[in-house]
Amino acid sequence: MTSYDTAATVIDRAPPRRNYEAADIHFIASRAMTYLLALTACTVVGFPLFWMVICSFKPATELYMSPPTFLPQQWTLQNYRDLFLQTRFPTYFLNSLIVAFGATLLSLLVGGLGAYSLSRFRFFGISGFSTVTLFCYMLPEVLIVIPLYIYVVQFGLADTLFSLIVANTAFTLPLALWFMRSYFNAIPVTLEESAMIDGCTRLQAMWKVTVPLAVPGLVSVSVFSFNHAWNEFLFALVFTSSERNKVLPLGLATWIGQDNIYSWGMLLASAVLVTLPVLVFYLAVQKRLVVGMTEGASKGE
């Protein structure tokens, strides 16, 4: 039989001695090691970006100094001012926005519809199409840049932003299809079935239930597409030539080749500005992804 006197014995005992994990030498060594490694990794990986930002605030004299100064002795916004006043940076920026938004919108509209079909139906040829999609995404750009260049010239679209939007879609669409398919897959089919029993047609169920739930997915797909089109360089290099129609990567690339004319300060300042939208978008998605809206619906499955 177990005893019933536990309550009484506890009172008489001395207060318990607390055990600290940190009193263990192995524990301390392993923690220290972790932090040391993490610090090293972050320093090495993060340094180029840190250096880019820091140097973009240095005056020209410091940028060409040898040995280089670490932190700017004199902080200046001159590089940024020059960028906007002396170069066509604003035009490039605007062009890049047009191309990236255009390609994203196009692939979102076309791809959203297609991905729904890929996710929900099993008719002949549909799973085959999924594979083809992934295959397209991995196709080398250099393979199709030649024929696309020929079409662009023949249709008189050379040196237009429109040609870039369309060409970028060749890669952002497979990406959108593939990703959105998996987002739709994650939304329980029973929700749509329930909507259909509640009186919706298939398309109403898709619009009223599936699409609202897929919003976090749509947002992140947009960011991926945007990022892809924002970075794209080869099509821009081949299709466009005039200053008026240059996008950022191409514009900056031309300056790199002429670093005697364009100062490093201006180049680094433009690099900082090109990175900004990408970072802003990334932060936006990160927040959306955490929400996990379908969590409540499928619990207990």
């Binding site: 880019m52 970075n231 900056l252 790199i256 990175t275």
Partner: peptide, 11 residues
């Protein structure tokens, strides 16, 4: 963006 990486590394 790749062009940014290239820029900073060239520097």
């Amino acid at each position: 963006p790749t062009v940014v990486a290239v820029l900073v590394w060239r520097y």
